[in-house]
Design a binder for these strands. Structure first.
Lengths: 224, 224
DNA sequence: CTTATCAAATTGTTCAACAATCCTTAGATT
DNA sequence: AATCTAAGGATTGTTGAACAATTTGATAAG
């Protein structure tokens, strides 16, 4: 056909020839829509619809679906299509169980990682600044990053990606709630947790973290 | 044999009705070959070859590749094909870091799960029986199952699947070694670990487990 | 011996067609 | 009227072919 290069439309449709695969490009778009709330949980993603909109072939789109399915953002029912994942209370409980394990282990290793403490301080400062300026979505992002850093204290690349996926899953619920009401209560707790860690009071930090996670879990379970 | 659908004892038979998709069927076959050593690490999986052998289309095969890539059993290099994963020393170290985290947390929760202890006893008995009869591959399988049960003490479905995937990855290295030399030293250690857990001596059990994992890590790192 | 160039082989992507399955609706039966 | 059954339409599952893009290996030139 007519020159399948970077033509098609002059507009913004597709960034040049990206180095990553087309499927990952499509997956990135869908991932963003899901985690930012454009695609609500339970919504069905029809192939016809999306192939037309994203201008990719069915095969490529299905590969993107597969990608997001592995991240547990989409659910695939055989012969029935893919749906934006709906987290059950059991899912939320399970996710928090894993978080207790990962973050608890991270806190217990905090004393061996001074660079990690510095990163935590930075994230806390970011959160405070965003809160002072009323940018609550940014506060939420900083809160998640805080816990991501705690997970990274385990010093394992695999744990980091696990944690990132868990938080992406949680965003399925987060964006249905008010970011201020959700994250504001945890700002001072995060700060105190950092203080305890810096003071070398490991067991106290561990207890505080556990309390934080329990509270967050209760809040989320109350909504579903 | 946990292959889905009717066996292909007569060659080309493809199951009439598979409950799962064809891609998952193909992935299951490849997964088994990889974890059982039929496909050695570093080996390239050519599309032509496998589409002919498995009698699936290229698209379906690539979907299966993608699936196994998520599980880190295959490595995908752009425009160069897929290869059976080769674990680097860094990979082994990272995997054992995760195992220390998961299994350590499991042991710490052992006292809340009497059913878990019973399962551990059963697996230890299996391993002893297999060792007495010289079935060393079975001993290895029981050893892995022992640690899978320890991970399950965390009471999280997600942790269970994480652990299963980690052990599948480790099998990439295991099946290049002698199962007897690899697993025999751990038989009495596992038994002792169980004894400590049953006696409620949590901290001692935790220390013993850490020692076991450190030792296993050293053995594997010595081979690559 | 090194570099440049070309041809073959393999992967990346798309398309169109058909099969299998699900869902809806209309009709028949009670 | 309610329930069951049987088309039919719509959507997904799978395939094969086609072409583009990239790598690989061989060959030729400097």
């Amino acid at each position: 056909m007519s020159e399948p290069g970077p033509s098609d439309a002059y507009g913004e449709t597709r960034p040049f020839r990206v180095r990553s695969s087309t499927a990952e490009w499509a997956a990135a778009i869908l991932r963003q829509r899901i985690t930012e709330g454009g695609l609500a949980p339970g919504r069905r993603l029809a192939e016809d619809e999306l192939t037309a909109e994203l201008e990719v072939s069915r095969n490529t789109l299905r590969e993107a679906f597969s990608l997001l399915g592995y991240e547990r953002l989409l659910e695939h029912r055989l012969n029935r299509g893919v749906y934006v994942r709906v987290l059950s209370p059991a899912d939320v409980a399970d996710i928090y169980q894993v978080r207790r394990m990962i973050e608890g282990a991270g806190v217990r290793r905090a004393d061996r990682d001074p660079a990690g403490l510095a990163a935590l301080r930075e994230v806390v400062a970011e959160a405070d600044k965003a809160a002072a300026e009323g940018r609550w979505p940014d506060v939420g992002a900083a809160d998640l990053r805080f816990h991501l850093v705690i997970a990274s204290l385990n010093g394992s690349e695999r744990v980091n990606t696990m944690m990132a996926q868990l938080l992406a899953e949680l965003r399925l619920v987060f964006h249905t709630l008010d970011p201020r009401a959700l994250h504001a209560p945890f700002l001072p707790l995060n700060r105190e947790l950092l203080t305890l860690l810096a003071a070398g009071r490991g067991p106290d930090a561990e207890a505080l973290l556990a309390a934080c996670l329990d509270q967050a879990e209760r809040v989320l379970l109350a909504t579903c």
